[in-house]
């Protein structure tokens, strides 16, 4: 069930939320994924952009061009670091060596934000290179909270945890995803990285109301927003099955849902994520501007602290 609203229909009369601003150490602007294809362009042109985000694991190397360029870009831009390999939802214990390497990377680049996923990607010493889903019940909740605690204690900073895009559900789940997330936030004190595309993708895939998902999340907990493009397939019964592919521009329905979320949470640093079909930087920057325009819209003015 697809819902759509126009920006004119938005009305955000609520007062500014100080808690929100305190959470967001990144500039309350839009940023972009940092891709090696764009290293040189960025240093040559110094585009006006809120921040860059990297995937931690791409920089867990000893030296060479990745560190060379990131060091120079970090000198000029705010940074968020997004991990894809901690496997916080995994049954296996956290990889402590990996956690140590992340700590070193965070010390080196002092990002405003470090985030990870409500998912698992490793098992029994192997890394599967995908964000895999977990059932939502008391046992998995405990496991995730333990892992989040462990990460926050080791990194000595607050983690932002990202809501997942999922393609299956589990019959053993007896907690909704939003209640599961709220419980993690309350128990561990971590923040939420709200991926609007993931909300849309998962809601479509499991026939939930994406706005109800947004409405269920408490204001003041969202430290960052992700926007990305998806691709469309079909499930075994011909129902739409959206894939969180990050290889296309942000879809209109996701922009609408973004407006809706901004209305609820106020302005939040927002990333345009792109991992595939990487366009020239100017194209990515144009999408970043679209997000900036929404962050600066009249409807939200006055909610910025």
């Amino acid at each position: 069930m697809k819902t759509s609203i126009t920006s004119e229909s938005l009305s955000c009369g609520a007062p500014a939320q100080a808690a929100q601003a305190a959470l967001a150490e990144l500039p309350v602007r839009a940023g972009a994924s940092l891709k090696p294809d764009h290293f040189q362009y960025i240093l040559n042109h110094l585009p006006d952009i809120g921040f860059f985000e990297i995937h931690a694991e791409n920089y867990l190397v000893d030296g060479g061009p990745f560190h060379h360029y990131l060091t120079r870009i970090r000198e000029r831009y705010a940074l968020s670091i997004h991990g894809v390999g901690l496997s916080i939802g995994g049954e296996s214990p956290l990889d402590l060596q990996h956690l140590d390497r992340l700590a070193d990377l965070i010390d080196r680049y002092a990002p405003a934000v470090f985030s990870e996923h409500l998912a698992w990607s490793g098992h029994a010493g192997f890394f599967l290179n995908d964000l895999l889903p977990l059932p939502y019940h008391r046992a998995t909740l405990q496991r995730v909270c333990d892992h989040v605690d462990q990460v926050q204690n080791r990194l000595k900073r607050r983690l932002l945890l990202e809501n997942p895009a999922t393609y299956v559900e589990f019959s053993s789940s007896n907690i909704t995803e939003t209640d599961f997330i709220i419980e993690i936030l309350q128990r561990t004190g971590c923040g939420l990285l709200l991926d609007i595309n993931n909300v849309y993708v998962s809601s479509t895939n499991h026939i939930r109301d994406p706005r109800a998902y947004i409405d269920a999340l408490p204001p003041g907990t969202v430290g960052q927003i992700h926007l990305a493009g998806f691709s469309q397939e079909q499930d075994g019964a011909g129902a739409p099955l959206l894939i969180d592919s990050h290889d296309a521009p942000v879809a209109a329905a996701v922009w609408d849902l973004y407006d809706y979320a901004l209305c609820r949470f106020g302005p939040v640093p927002t990333l345009i994520e792109r991992d595939g079909n990487i366009p020239p930087f100017e194209v990515l920057q144009a999408e970043v501007r679209l997000a900036d325009e929404r962050l600066n819209s009249d409807a939200l003015r006055g909610r910025r602290s």
């Binding site: 599967l128 290179n129 995908d130 895999l132 889903p133 059932p135 393609y167 299956v168 559900e169 589990f170 019959s171 053993s172 789940s173 895939n205 499991h206 026939i207 397939e233 079909q234 499930d235 075994g236 019964a237 129902a239 099955l241 894939i243």
Partner: peptide, 29 residues
């Protein structure tokens, strides 16, 4: 066994997304 789908469709098609993600991403690597 724990997989579920809202419309009762065969979870194999949906699960195949994960199979593809893992295999294709590693082959791409």
């Amino acid at each position: 066994r724990d997989l579920a789908t809202w419309n009762g469709s065969d979870p194999a098609t949906r699960f195949a997304v994960y199979r593809n993600n893992v295999t294709v991403s590693l082959i791409d690597a």
